[in-house]
Amino acid sequence: MSDPVVSAIVFYALAAFTLIGAGVVALSGNIVHSAFALFAALFGMAGLYAFLSADLLAVVQMLVYVGGISVLVLFAVMLTSGLDDSRTSNSTTRLVGGIAVMLAVAAAAFVAASAIPSGVESAVAPTTAPIGDLLLGRFVLPFEVVSVVLLAALLGAVTLARGVKGGDR
């Protein structure tokens, strides 16, 4: 973005949105609120990708995480907890351990991030074609392996679901 002030505002706003969402996920007493906050955190991530001009990644993040995984998590939360007991969720007794882990992860991330040379400004260009070339060129083996893993997960899910239903009848 051209104007550094505006880009700073946007970045901090998106980051705050994401972090607050993640905080609500971890600390909220209502599990449904946590699920919706997860959606907010992932949406914030998509915004950050867009901020970095990673257009395909942002859109795919929306499609997969928000449209797929958030909905999945919400289904799981709504269908397993009754209408009444959604108030009980994670208790915050492990706050100390959580904060410790968070600090450790943040430190590690800071160290890793400072190893990347800053100020690398790439030209704003559409990323779809290069990503496609890479996926079907250099990284075609991991791509295919991931698709096989997904297939195995899908078959496993279907088998499990059918097994449960078969057990009922």
């Binding site: 795919v60 929306m62 928000v66 449209g67 909905v71 559409p126 779809t128």
Partner: peptide, 16 residues
């Protein structure tokens, strides 16, 4: 550049 995919993706908000 990813307009069509963006359209599909953003309608996921409606589901939520």
């Amino acid at each position: 550049d990813v307009g069509l995919l963006y359209l599909l993706a953003i309608t996921g908000l409606v589901v939520i």
